[in-house]
Simulated scan of single mutants.
Amino acid sequence: MPPPSGTTAHPPAEVLISEVGPRDGLQSVKTTMPTADKCTWLDALVAAGLREIEVASFVPAKRLPQMADAAHVVRHARRHPGLTVVALVPNLRGAQDALRAGAHKLTLPVSASAAHALANTRKTPAGMVEEVRAIARLRDELSPGTRLEVGISTAFGCSLQGPVPPDDVIRLAAECIAAGADESGLSDTVGYAHPAQVRSLFRRLRAEIGEHAGAAHMHNTRGLGLANCFAAWDAGVRTFDASLGGLGGCPHAPGASGNVVTEDLVFMFQAMGIRTGIHLEKLFAARQALAAGLPGEPLYGMTPQAGLPKGFGQRP
Rank of each mutant, 00 (worst) to 15 (best):
T124D: 06
R206K: 14
C229A: 08
L226Y: 03
A235R: 10
G313K: 12
T146M: 00
A232R: 04
I135D: 08
A48R: 06
G157S: 13
G248Y: 12
P90H: 08
A155F: 12
A101V: 06
T8N: 05
P22K: 08
G249S: 02
G245F: 14
F240V: 00
M272L: 13
A292G: 06
M218C: 12
Q314E: 15
G94A: 04
R287W: 07
G245L: 13
D264A: 04
A61F: 09
V55P: 05
F267L: 09
R133Q: 12
S187Y: 08
S57N: 12
L226A: 02
R199D: 15
T7P: 08
R203I: 08
G296A: 11
R75M: 06
R63V: 15
G145I: 03
S159C: 07
Y300C: 03
G301M: 06
G296K: 09
G225H: 02
E183A: 08
A70G: 04
D234Y: 03
A70I: 04
S187P: 07
A117I: 05
D140G: 03
T276G: 13
D264H: 05
A47K: 10
S184N: 12
R78I: 03
T262C: 07
G210M: 02
Q96Y: 09
S159G: 09
D43G: 00
P4E: 15
G157H: 10
P34F: 13
R137C: 03
N259F: 09
E183C: 02
A98F: 03
P109M: 02
T107D: 09
A101N: 01
C158V: 11
G151Q: 14
A232Q: 14
R238S: 13
D140I: 02
G301N: 09
A71K: 03
G296I: 09
P60Q: 14
P65W: 01
H72L: 13
H212M: 09
L108M: 14
L308A: 15
L224P: 00
M67S: 05
L290K: 05
I53R: 01
N120R: 01
T40C: 03
K30S: 10
V261R: 11
P309Q: 09
G255K: 08
V15R: 07
F58P: 04
H104T: 08
R75N: 00
L299W: 13
A9R: 05
A101K: 02
S159F: 12
G102H: 04
W41S: 00
Y300F: 10
H217M: 12
T276S: 07
P65E: 05
A227F: 10
V55G: 06
A117R: 00
G49Y: 11
R238F: 05
V129E: 14
T154E: 14
V46H: 11
T221D: 09
Q27F: 08
Q161M: 05
T154Q: 05
L205W: 08
L299M: 12
R199E: 15
D37G: 01
P81T: 03
P4T: 15
G6P: 13
L205V: 11
G313I: 10
F284S: 00
D37Y: 07
G151T: 15
A178Q: 11
A9I: 02
G214A: 07
T239L: 04
E14R: 10
